[in-house]
């Protein structure tokens, strides 16, 4: 498939909903299709089972033409931690084992069933690692048969999509990145282009007040500077203007570039998916 004429499908997968955006064109991308699906989050024994079933049904409908599919995983499905630098790690296997060990210290035996990834950021510093239930990855892969025209090319955590989209804003200075979803907030602190802390917390984070409380707690725990620092927020709701202030914190909204075929007022349900554009 030509990179100029390719058809990309971006899917945001959350415990209770799925948002799909189909984009055509490389130079002048435009939204060719979009749809959302919701279900009862209590469906299935695992929180991701409803998402897996919805994804399989959806892929069966979109499989009529060649396309590249990127799935963005809600932070509800992902755990993050910072893995300290270690000069003793010789190869990828040792590195993976060490990442598992770091997760097991936090989450115990459950982490054995997780698929882990370690970022390739600056060597010699602590790096971000992620963990996703291996069965969820299997279900997602299984939704895209080898012969299907829709090819799965990427499954990435929401933090990865958002960071890569706005990383230019995080260069040099100290800044916080806050990703807000229903009943979930993921907070990461960056200093000198390094991540110094990452927190993925369940709870109600409706607006700047709750965000400020989360930031205060996190700053206290990691011993970050008391001086005000910028907070970049990507949230479907809770921030109507381009910025807001609460308890000494200034929150700047991370806005997506407008894309043809999707009005700004209609972007919210698809904002997580569009981070991977």
């Amino acid at each position: 498939m030509s990179r100029l004429s390719r058809h990309r499908i971006l899917i945001a997968l959350a415990p209770d909903s799925l948002a799909l955006v189909g984009i055509r064109g490389a130079f002048r991308p435009r939204v060719a299709e979009r749809r959302t699906t919701a279900w009862d989050p209590a469906f299935g024994a695992e929180p991701w089972q409803g998402a897996g079933a919805a994804l399989a049904q959806l892929v069966a409908k979109i499989g009529s033409e060649n396309s590249e599919v990127t799935v963005v995983l809600s932070n509800h499905f992902v755990r993050y931690t910072l893995v300290p630098a270690s000069a003793a790690l010789g190869n990828a296997e040792e590195e993976a084992a060490f990442v598992r060990y770091c997760f097991s210290k936090i989450h115990g035996e459950r982490s054995k069933e997780w698929d882990v990834r370690l970022s390739r950021q600056s060597a010699g510093t602590a790096r971000i690692a992620s963990a996703v239930d291996s069965k969820l990855i299997e279900v997602i892969r299984g939704a895209f048969p080898a012969k299907a025209k829709a090819k799965l090319v990427s499954v990435q955590p929401y933090l990865m999509s958002a960071f890569n989209r706005w990383r230019a804003l995080l260069k040099g200075a100290r800044a916080w990145l806050l990703l807000v979803e229903p009943q979930r907030a993921c907070l990461a602190h960056f200093e000198d282009e390094r991540c110094t802390t990452v927190r993925n917390t369940r709870g109600s984070f409706e607006g700047p007040v709750q965000w400020a409380e989360l930031l205060d707690r996190e700053r206290h725990q990691v011993g970050a500077a008391e001086t005000p620092e910028g907070v970049y927020v990507h949230a479907a709701r809770g921030l109507t203007g381009s910025s807001a202030e609460a308890q000494g914190w200034t929150f700047s909204k991370l806005a997506l570039d407008p894309v043809e075929g999707l009005a700004a007022a209609e972007t919210d349900p698809y904002s997580m998916a569009l981070c991977a554009r």
């Binding site: 990834r117 970022s119 990855i137 933090l159 990865m160 890569n164 990383r167």
Partner: peptide, 15 residues
């Protein structure tokens, strides 16, 4: 300098 990309993909090979 812009921070390096975060590569935590579960399908694609890291860039």
């Amino acid at each position: 300098m812009t921070p390096r990309r975060l590569e935590l993909d579960y399908v694609a090979v890291p860039r």
